[in-house]
């Protein structure tokens, strides 16, 4: 088995003058759950389409399951596109089985596999229903199932969570974890950082067609220094001088009660630093704390930090 199911080297794609994907390189290890993150219009879908050989890159090379072209290994790939759609008139089991046969499964196996999946993920009662009678969320679940029914080695899901209610989001998370457990590699793109945080071994962050980050969750967390928030009266210089503290910034949050004379500080601390020691340091120096907060930065913070003003600007457009 290869080490990487997928490798991109310097891949670019232009639409006229617009650069959708700009010189992206990354590799996805076999058997991992890989998050594909980025703001709207970052180039996620274009990248995915190039990986699947639906679009041809203008520059760079792609190696997928040991082949240079996804077409040759398309039976080993499962794909859920960003914009979901199914044949409205077909029955639920038939559509799952149809897409599985298009991936090379024989008809009989495909049919029993369809029923098996429907039963396992709570859609057994709808097996004979027509797709048009399903709710949007259910339809989406059916589509996810039809994308993975043929047990692909590599599963690519473009925004699989959008439009699902929390219960179904959990079902989908379960499905992704089930697949990973069976040794399948799963790539999914998302906006919702909690999913990535819960599921991903590694993640790739792109914005404006460029790679911004590629690494594990721990790597991501390391990008933003850990922070301690203090609210107190008087001087805190004794604490900031401590070796664990990288720097201190005074903040003026609107909720903060300035009349009482207390000040609001945000301290950035070292990776290995122990927040307990900082608290201890405060006591030793008789700093009257009204608040002490230690927070691990969330992936959301990392995302906003990395994408920064660009993303905000983009979302306002």
């Amino acid at each position: 088995m290869q080490e990487h199911v997928l490798e991109l080297n310097g891949v670019s794609k232009h639409y006229g003058k617009f650069t959708a994907v700009d010189d992206i390189s990354f590799a996805i290890p076999t058997g991992s759950i890989y998050g594909f993150l980025g703001p709207n219009g970052a180039g996620k879908t274009t990248t995915i389409r190039m990986i699947l050989d639906i679009l041809k890159p203008d520059k760079g090379s792609i190696n997928i399951l040991g082949e240079s072209c996804a077409l040759n290994v398309r039976h080993r790939i499962g794909y859920l596109p960003e914009e979901k759609g199914l044949y409205k008139k077909m029955r639920v089991w038939a559509i799952i089985s149809y897409f599985a046969t298009l991936k090379g499964m024989d008809k009989k196996t495909a049919k029993s596999r369809a029923f098996e999946l429907l039963e396992r993920y709570g859609l057994k009662d709808y097996a004979e229903a027509r797709v048009e009678s399903l709710s949007k969320g259910m339809g989406q679940k059916v589509q996810v199932l039809s994308a993975v029914a043929h047990r692909p080695e590599l599963v690519i899901l473009d925004e699989p969570f959008s439009g699902l209610d929390p219960v179904n989001q959990e079902v989908l998370e379960q499905l992704i974890q089930d697949m990973a457990q069976e040794g399948q590699t799963v790539i999914f793109s998302t906006h919702i950082m909690q999913h990535a945080e819960r599921l991903c071994d590694r993640m790739l962050l792109i914005a404006k067609g460029q790679k911004i980050f590629d690494g594990t969750l721990a790597d991501a967390h390391a990008i933003i220094p850990r922070r301690v928030t203090l609210e107190c009266q008087g001087d805190i210089s004794a604490v900031t001088k401590s070796a664990d503290v990288l720097g201190a910034i005074e903040r003026f949050p609107e909720t903060h009660n300035r009349a009482a004379g207390s000040r609001h500080w945000e301290l950035q601390i070292k990776e290995q630093a122990d927040p307990q020691k900082i608290l201890q340091c405060c006591f030793e120096n008789n700093i009257a704390l009204t608040r002490f907060d230690y927070t691990q930065p969330s992936l959301h913070d990392v995302f906003v930090h990395l994408v920064g003003s660009d993303a905000r600007e983009h979302s306002l457009r």
Binding site: L71, I77, G85, L86, L102
Partner: peptide
């Protein structure tokens, strides 16, 4: 219909 339903993309990932 296939195009507006976006089925085409799934199909194109499976067939030429």
């Amino acid at each position: 219909e296939e195009k507006s339903n976006r089925i085409i993309e799934v199909l194109l990932a499976s067939v030429t």
